[in-house]
Simulated assay, not measured.
Amino acid sequence: MEKEELFNYQKLTEEQLQTYNEQGYLILKGVIKPQGLEQMRAECMKAWNKEKESFDPNKSWLQNSLLVNVHHQAPTVKQYYFEGPLVSVATQIIGENVKGATSQLTFKMKGNTKPFGWHQDNGYGELDPYNALTTLSALDDTDRGNGCLWLIPGSHKQGQIRVEQNAEQKQSQSEIIVEADDSKAIPMEMKAGDSLIFNCWMLHKSDGNYSTDRDRRILFLRYADADAIEVYNNRKPRLGKLVNGHTKFHEVEEFEADL
């Protein structure tokens, strides 16, 4: 099926770009069309059921809620990640040279009431330059009842927040939680097919899914400067498929996205 039948391609307006720079986020309506949603849900659930089980409160967040590199098993997600409308959005915000940096299905099943505290995405995977872009595309309607995201508008302006972790915390990959003022938070409620985009320094969290009959499935796709390096990994280049422009790193130029 042609991409145009699955996704709505759009260019950010000057007003949207100004809002993003000032507030640190945007919600883009109806980025994924109904046929695209149908295909993505089917592919994602096939991949999920192949590797995962039902929610278990004794398991970790990674075991319960994340399926990494979901595009390896979901062709429509791969098309969306590498050729979809978010690539154009990323080039407007990051610049002409862009690579895909992360692909995940975040699946907060009904009954998974575990919250995820305040953090910055660049706190977990610090990339330089500091213009990486997080996109969250809703495969289900998301609201306060089933664990939608909350963020603090403008909080990206404080830059990278340093959190001290001891060797044991680093080894266990424990959550990197920061202090934030809950009174300034607003819920990011979305309809299925919408996409939330925000700055790598944006403070955000999510509550548990207290719904008894609704899951909350989100595609987490991160884009970065094509020459972005991993600060936490001896400043090695972040590997990811080049989706626009060029890069100075042959490792990125030659990166095979399916590996």
Rank of each mutant, 00 (worst) to 15 (best):
K157L: 14
Y124M: 13
V163D: 09
W150N: 03
K108A: 03
Q173C: 11
M190T: 03
D140Q: 09
R162C: 01
G193Q: 06
N97Y: 01
G111V: 07
E189C: 12
G111P: 07
D143T: 05
N112T: 02
D140M: 06
F116Q: 07
D181M: 10
W150D: 02
A185L: 10
K114V: 12
K99M: 11
Q171T: 13
S103Y: 00
L196F: 08
Y124P: 10
K99T: 00
G159W: 03
K99R: 13
T135Q: 05
F107T: 01
L149S: 02
L127M: 15
G123L: 13
Q104D: 00
V163K: 12
W118F: 13
K114W: 00
D194C: 08
S174I: 10
Q120F: 11
Q160G: 05
A101L: 09
P187H: 04
D121Q: 06
G147T: 04
C148I: 04
M188P: 01
I186P: 07
E168S: 11
K110P: 01
N146C: 08
K157C: 08
I177T: 15
M109G: 05
L196E: 04
V163N: 07
T134W: 02
K170V: 11
Y124G: 11
D143G: 13
F107W: 12
S183L: 05
N122S: 15
K184D: 06
D140E: 12
T113I: 10
Y124K: 12
L136C: 05
G147R: 02
K191T: 13
L136W: 09
F107C: 09
Q171M: 15
K108V: 08
N166H: 10
S172V: 12
K110A: 12
L139W: 03
V178N: 09
G159Q: 06
P129T: 10
D140L: 08
I176T: 14
D141I: 05
L127E: 12
I176Y: 11
G117Y: 12
Q165L: 15
D182M: 10
G123I: 11
A192Y: 02
S103T: 07
T102S: 00
M109R: 15
C148K: 04
S195M: 04
H119T: 09
S195E: 02
Y130I: 11
N97M: 07
S174C: 13
A180W: 06
T134Y: 02
Q173E: 15
W118K: 09
A192Q: 08
E164F: 14
E175Y: 14
L139I: 07
L133P: 04
V98C: 06
K99G: 00
A167G: 04
I176S: 08
D121F: 06
E164I: 12
I176K: 15
K157A: 13
K170I: 13
G159H: 05
N122A: 14
K157S: 13
A138D: 03
V178P: 08
E168D: 11
E164L: 14
K184A: 12
T135K: 05
D128T: 14
S172M: 15
D141G: 08
Q158M: 06
G100V: 01
H119S: 10
L196Y: 05
K114H: 07
A180S: 12
E189Y: 02
A185Q: 10
T134P: 01
L196N: 01
A192E: 05
L196A: 04
D141V: 04
T102Y: 00
G100H: 00
E164V: 14
D194T: 07
E189L: 03
A132D: 13
T113E: 13
Q120K: 11
S183F: 01
W118H: 10
F116I: 11
E179W: 01
A138Q: 03
